[in-house]
Design a protein around this nucleic acid. Sequence first.
DNA 1: ATGCACGGGCTAACGTCGTTAGCCATAAAG
DNA 2: CTTTATGGCTAACGACGTTAGCCCGTGCAT
Lengths: 182, 182
Amino acid sequence: MADPFTDRLTPRARDIVSAARALLEEEGPEALTMRRLGDRLGIKAPSLYKHFPDKAAVESELIALSLWETAEVLEAAEAADPGSVPALAEAYRRHALAHPHLYRLTTERPLPRAALPPGLEYRAAAPLFRACGGDEDLARAAWAFAHGMVVLQLNGRFPDGADLTKAWETGAAAFQPATADC
Amino acid sequence: MADPFTDRLTPRARDIVSAARALLEEEGPEALTMRRLGDRLGIKAPSLYKHFPDKAAVESELIALSLWETAEVLEAAEAADPGSVPALAEAYRRHALAHPHLYRLTTERPLPRAALPPGLEYRAAAPLFRACGGDEDLARAAWAFAHGMVVLQLNGRFPDGADLTKAWETGAAAFQPATADC
DNA sequence: ATGCACGGGCTAACGTCGTTAGCCATAAAG
DNA sequence: CTTTATGGCTAACGACGTTAGCCCGTGCAT
């Protein structure tokens, strides 16, 4: 459960990642430039290349971090209310909307799988898979729903007065496998 | 039903938009630069500014075009199989996956609403709304599902062997409002 | 016929971006 | 005491979006 970065990264590299995270979360993706990142650490941009091969490598660490936090959040939700799709959906939604820029960075391009701690991607997906009763297709559809809701909201695609909580409830309920009734 | 660009744009501007579309679809978003776009038309990049105020304005036209095509495709699917959510989902999926770069451009940032033909956004949304029996929340959830499926697939987020057709069917069925049974 | 506006090209240049090359100081290790 | 790694630095390159300013042709008004 301990974060997987302490041993994979040198202390200075961790400084850089955490400055990058702050920059991204506070000012958005266009502020995350190598020069701004250097400024924040009191060094010049080229010096960053002593610690990371390129900007993508820094971003990969942010993605790993985001994935790890998602896993933590979903596991906590599962522990609190085992087997509930709506509980996972709510936890996913809260975390994503609390870190919009990090969420986008993590989701809007192909995952840099080679640069990720092994098993992390699977771990983030597992709670929903379990809540869907092991139905892969249902779990994928539910994940797509949750991701779609977050990203459409972040992009301001829903009408202004839209009651998104109701849309979330409607969707999450549609993906809850029937345990007893009907 | 006629495309809404013929009268809004000068012929030269339409040339530019269509070159931009070709560039984007053939070579992806990083190829869509003002210099490359100029090359394709046999002119220099600064000359493009005689026709559009900036790159975002060209992209806005691409977005309008994409939205218009989506509306056309969904209306056709609705006409062929009225009231069917799965039919709309299938049409949405096909069109999006046939034009991945255009789809991303259209969806992964806030809509430039001020630059869009009025009513276009609504028109693209209407068929799904109708198929959901006028249930706004259901329609939003269904849209989120479809968008999520497309974008997660485009980003290679599903496992390699995943049967996405089944995931689509599962999700689309979950959003089909009950007309008679159960 | 002459003058003029204007549409639509051009070159040169600016500032920002990621990135590379190459230099130098400090500190640990032989 | 010398060497080697670590981690800074400056200068610079090429690509990006964009601006300023020039020029040539067409068509209309005087």
